[in-house]
Design a protein around this nucleic acid. Structure first.
Lengths: 112, 112
DNA sequence: TTATAATATAATCATATGGTTATTTGTTTT
DNA sequence: AAAACAAATAACCATATGATTATATTATAA
């Protein structure tokens, strides 16, 4: 891959919030409303981060009813030469959010 | 590694000039005055890029007489989970610079 | 069909970034 | 010691970035 293209993908990765979003998506697909309470920034801010990740081809999006779910594009990470296993496992952090339903602003969890 | 730290290193990598500098250092150690003619930007601009790469721990520096040579910190790339082999090989590009000595602003090549 | 929920977009703002030119610092050469 | 070379630092500027609030858009629920 050419340097410009590679650098573009790396730039999308190289922001702490977005990198942690990638870590969360490594655990499971997530929708925007689940990510908002994790980071304590506004919903539009998360949406813009997802747009950046999607534009770089690092994540895929899929609408499921009211929600838009984002998932990792693992193929893109291979091409990028980035090993996802270096990211800390966030399973527990995601579980914590699921448990304290009070702080979760969306109703996605009630669907299950 | 934590997300902040990882993101910081990725940010240092995620700029086209710096990423290409890494590609050149993969071929061999280089000094600033060799890099200047490759990119067509000013010497201070290259120096600042080297500072960013060094601060992120991605490169090491070593003074040799008048020159300061930079080399890859390969260990850092492992920790970062980034596979250097995805970068295009720039051996020829470096050779081209060596050959057309006219455009090279420093005398490093005359040393050999 | 009206209200509500989830997401995206627009407008705005402060800070970070990557470049420039001018100058300083360190090293070698004459 | 003076001149020249290599690199770093300082001051500055235009653009990119990451956040905000306000407003649209899209889909479900009442």
């Amino acid at each position: 891959m050419e340097f410009e293209n590679l650098a573009g993908k790396l730039k999308a990765l190289s922001e702490p919030t977005r990198l942690k979003i990638i870590g969360l998506l490594k655990v499971r697909d997530c929708c925007v409303c689940e990510l908002v309470p994790v980071f304590g920034i506004s919903q539009p801010a998360i949406s813009k981060h997802m747009f950046r990740l999607k534009s770089a081809g690092l994540v895929k999006e899929e609408r499921r009813g009211k929600w838009v779910f984002y998932s990792l594009n693992k193929e893109a990470f291979k091409e990028l030469g980035f090993d996802l296993s270096v990211l800390p496992d966030l399973t527990n952090e995601l579980k914590a959010i699921e448990d304290q339903g009070s702080s979760v602003q969306c109703n996605i969890l009630e669907q299950a």
